[in-house]
Design a protein around this nucleic acid. Structure first.
Lengths: 137, 137
DNA sequence: TAGTTGTTTAGAAGAATTCTAATCTATTGA
DNA sequence: TCAATAGATTAGAATTCTTCTAAACAACTA
């Protein structure tokens, strides 16, 4: 789980992106703390806190570039904002409706069976399971 | 599947809402054409076409009131806009990434197995499966 | 029918995201 | 090494979807 700066740079270069100061800082935040789920706003806040000035536009640019490059995946759980997940292995999610917290569900521990015939002329792109939870009252 | 005006009015009254002209028109569009998936914008367009002037604010008000009353459910598949589903029975969805089309998957034909232990202090609110599809290349 | 309460509305406001075009930085190759 | 170029960053404007405001209106109740 320990990604050194050199690994981050390789990760970025392999994605055919330039290892700029901002990009390295974002990669550091995203990939050196275990699997994460972040929103643009949250990542922006963390970058600020860590002392690296990164504009929101750059946060969005990079979240999308990382997603396109296969370094991030977008998780759609909330119609009001986007979440990005650093865990690229197949898995699903718990989503806490009140707190907005996302938690991984290992693919191995949950299976989806009997998906019916797909609409004509289409192929599966992904199967996403969201288990929405609430605080027990 | 044939809902007469009188049925629509009852549906609305049972939800403790007043059967206004706008509300009846929206209910007509939503509940007399089989199971549907609509966005606010689309429903607004349909209301206009059908000759009933309804403001967008009213569309949003009613989509939310219907949802709260259990007459609609929101389906989160796209982070840029909200979809509302008139089918209130348990089921899942196909979502066509390119066209934005949503299609029901009967609950009976798809099962989710082995959901692991929930995060502490939480209970399941819903289990949503989205099978994202693309046009075959 | 008057009073009350719920509903609708235009337009303003808000929030998340994208765009623009100017500036800056990394890379390339002579 | 250095100039040229291609890519990256940025502030701020713009866009899009959604919600809010507060005034006018319509349905309900007594």
């Amino acid at each position: 789980m320990q990604l050194h700066p050199i690994d981050l740079e390789k990760k970025i270069r392999d994605a055919k992106l330039r290892p700029t100061k901002q990009r390295l800082a974002l990669a550091q935040l995203l990939y050196t703390k275990g699997d994460r789920h972040v929103t643009a706003e949250r990542l922006h806040g963390e970058a600020m806190e860590s002392g690296v000035a990164v504009s929101l536009a750059t946060i969005y640019n990079n979240l999308h570039q990382f997603t396109t490059a296969g370094l991030l995946r977008e998780v759609v759980v909330d119609s009001s904002r986007s979440y990005f997940d650093t865990n690229m292995t197949p898995h699903h999610h718990f989503f806490h409706e009140q707190t907005g917290a996302l938690e991984d569900i290992p693919k191995s521990s949950l299976t989806v069976e009997n998906i019916p015939a797909l609409p004509a002329g289409t192929e599966i792109c992904s199967v996403d399971v969201i288990v929405r939870v609430n605080t027990t009252r």
